[in-house]
Design a protein around this nucleic acid. Sequence first.
DNA 1: ACTACGAGACTTTTT
DNA 2: GTCTCGTAGT
Length: 718
Amino acid sequence: MTHAYLSGLNPEQREAVTLPRQSALILAGAGSGKTRVLTLRIAYLIQTGQVSPHGILAVTFTNKAAREMLTRLSAALPINTRGMWVGTFHGLCNRLLRAHHREAGLPALFQILDSQDQLAAVKRVMKALNIDEEKYPPRQVQHFISGNKEQGLRASDIEAYDPHTRRMAEIFAAYDEQCQKEGVADFAELLLRCYELLSRDEGLRRHYQQRFRYILVDEFQDTNRLQYLWLKLLAGDEGAVFAVGDDDQSIYAFRGARVGNMADFERDFQVEKIVRLERNYRSQGNILEAANALIRHNAERLGKNLWTDEGEGEPIRLFEAPTDRAEADFIVEEVEALQRDGMALSDMALLYRSNAQSRVLEHALFSAGLPYRVYGGLRFFERQEIKHALAYLRVMANPNDDGAFLRVVNFPTRGIGARSLEQLQEVAAEGGVSLWQAARHTPLGGKAGAGLRGFVQMIDLLRDTCSHLSLAEQVEQVLAASGLVEHYQKDKQEAERVENLNELVNAAAVFDGEYEPEETADGSPPLPILAAFLAHASLEAGEHQAEGGQDALQLMTVHSAKGLEFRAVFITGLEEGLFPHENAMMDDGGLEEERRLMYVAITRARQRLYLSFAQSRMLHGQMRYGLASRFLREIPSGLIKQVGGGYDYGEAMEWTGPAPAASNGTGFAVGQGVMHAKFGIGVIVNCEGRGADARVQVNFRDSGVKWLALEYAKLTPL
DNA sequence: ACTACGAGACTTTTT
DNA sequence: GTCTCGTAGT
């Protein structure tokens, strides 16, 4: 049998796509056609009649990736994708939990907490338990809770040997209890709840194991422990898992990703053969060679080498700037030159390690009048005004949702102060009921009482009028009745918020048109569109920035550049302490993860790659003097061409900073390069005292930042 | 209930 | 430098 769509594949890709039914690990290097292999694998399985769409489960990490897979799939084959489960881990778990909410112990209309909501919920629990936020920072507690859930652990599973951890576990337990009472689930809960449900319910487990005979996983290197356990459970003994990933692109260990899952997978799933996709269709030779050389400095690797037959292409350009501003100015010049040569701005990307670095770049771009687009920041459904509107909808859908209740009961203000709310919370706690129930049954006096009654009435009325309206109309009703729009209209500065609220109505209208209720197996009523919309809002926070359209330069962190490609890429701020980031060096494996991050950055470029760093930079309102990143030295110098200034790259570490100002009478000054017998070379970043008392702070290339007394430390000026 | 001021942080991020 | 958060003052 011939399959036209297989003809364009290289031998390894073809091997992966046509593997027999067995679990397989596909090591897919950057730009090796990973998504193509994944979608064609599905197409192949279906077209050869090995499985119907009904038997396929494909998991991704982002909604974008899931959408892309579906789009490409329908383009490759005229197959019906209905019946196939394609989505994110969280989306799929949500779907499963909705279908079996009773067995899972959740209300039909359970709400999903995003990280913001979760943090608020944690604070609430801590307040109820009277816990000092100084001793237990809510963010840390939140991290503790999510982190443990992502390991598959409940509060009762935690072995606490110290009082601090024990207390955290207590908060964890109370938090889960609160969520259960309120009928809400955080992100990690979706997965854990689903995992527990399938573990406990053999019938259900068998059912899904038999259904999903083929499971495909994208970005496998980013899975956490719980996701791995979930996959293993769902696959059972019979399931075939097709895992695609790249250990060299694992950059999310800090949020629980476990590269070790790849090795475990090989063992646990009896993987017979690892298919390596090493042929790269994106970048030219020099760029790939740089990436290969860099990543070879990592010890923990499965091993892989990218290649191309495209030719070596242009040299990599390196620019050393005296300051961060000069770095930005240089980039502006180069961007303009590329633009003159006919490259679209949207084909160029400026990458940086941390968001704070975008400021200087933006400033320079703005002055030059170059249109740009910054990725990151608040997304649509995370905006305050949208969260407020959604909270009204949430109270309507699930009156037990205390979090949503508290968010809007006095917003816009209805004269219900903190004191009345505390009272209400007491009443609710005593009666073991939700705030909503307490508000409805306990008459409070005065202004607050009236406000509260008004709120309850409004919600009741809204629920009533909305029962027969379309989703978009429901949202309109809420916006009008709540007074949200009015509130924001009062302030001219808040005009954008009003626009966003109108945009929410549009989003609801779109959802109206697309929503197809899930057929329920047991004849129970389908999920109302409102609940589905709220779940959608939590699970898919929307675009980072709405405006597209205009041709604009792309600015983003290296993390958010993963999966993208550009004709020209600028990797900026290549300084020790910034990239690799100093905080990353603390935890073990940190440097290797930073290096993988650099690897990801390099492999985004198709034709032209710029690397730049600044000798000095404003950081935290202070001037910082940095050394060139070690990553620069890990790229063979033969691939690199110095641009914009005569400076010998081979001597990268030995540049002499600003002329030493002898102000402290020692001959050493901030910015000065120095050599120490034990610590090696570094740069002075701070000085204090004079003469015999003088101390200097030195940022050493290999040993970090240290304070040294000049009288004792033998420092040689460079 | 709203504003103003000071303290402290400040790496990366999707769901 | 700049943003967020919490508290104190009007």
